[in-house]
Design a protein around this nucleic acid. Structure first.
Lengths: 158, 158
DNA sequence: GTCATTTAGTTCCGCGTGGAACTTATTCTC
DNA sequence: GAGAATAAGTTCCACGCGGAACTAAATGAC
């Protein structure tokens, strides 16, 4: 009856919000990451902290749990859980540091690399679908802007 | 002893990751949102879904819970919980729709507007601190790029 | 060398989250 | 108009998350 149902759209909403940059950043980030990690969890049974661990170790040969925590910004208990599960699945290896009995030397195994490759391509494909409307030039611009922000943000945090 | 401790930095890590746009977007978004909502929760006792509800209602006079769910992309049970708490705190009002007995007509109250104003300024200040290194021009560029992405993304989703 | 302090990693616990099933109301079909 | 299908909102439950307290190891002070 009352067909004057003007249900507002997310796009319209994003234009009204007081902190537009934040809203847009959050929206785009979620549009990539949420479906990507949902798929990764469904298909590979790997949760986010676990993948971030694999991701870190695929780029640095040896890291401690603390390093991973710093690199990813996740709390160390999350990393600790991830380490245990990835150890159990054989995706990483762990050895006590000889020089410091507190630290662990973590490294990725071949099966971990395989898993990383699969997950990476999943995330990449979601990224490409979401950012498809940007030209190569625009993507470079986006990266350089975000880069500028992160360099300053990290510097200020220290 | 082994002072060759080259603990890698998040900034360096961001340059190596295979999906750089996603990593940067996620990093910047988190840098704004996480501390902002942590502060909001600590100071005002309002959690994220609750604030998103207030935010929606501060921009549209009447919405149903379903509308809020669509606008924010959050599942309807999260919105439902938020509605109950905001009702209890007097930040929103609810009335059954006359035309459709299933829907609720939600609206924000003066106290809800006050709360929204406080939270908004908190989020805004975190946004400004994080994006401080961008010029006005660069911010416009960033917005337009993200805008382009969201318009296309929403269109494709429909 | 001994004791206090700091640090890496783990365990514990409470909470926000979201999928799924459920209830109630509306709409569609015949 | 009766029954099926859809839709709005709620409740239930399992899970990932992160702060806080804890253990073990190393470092600093004296």
């Amino acid at each position: 009856m009352a067909m004057t149902e003007e249900t507002p759209t997310p796009t319209d909403f994003l234009k009204r919000v007081e902190f537009r940059e934040t809203a847009l950043l959050s929206f785009v980030t979620s549009a990539i990451i949420e479906p990507a990690y949902e798929q990764v969890q469904r298909e590979f049974g790997i949760i986010r902290a676990e993948y971030m661990l694999l991701l870190c170790l695929s780029h640095y040969p040896i890291l401690s749990a603390r390093d991973v925590s710093i690199l990813t910004g996740r709390p160390k208990n999350s990393i600790s859980r991830a380490v245990h599960r990835m150890l159990a699945l054989g995706h990483i290896a762990r050895a006590r540091s000889a020089s410091d009995g507190r630290q662990d030397h973590l490294s990725i195994t071949p099966s971990g690399r395989e898993m990383h490759a699969k997950i990476m391509s999943t995330v990449l494909s979601h990224q490409e679908v979401t950012l498809i409307s940007l030209t190569a030039d625009e993507r470079r611009t986006l990266i350089s802007l975000l880069d500028k922000v992160t360099c300053q943000a990290v510097g200020a945090g220290t």
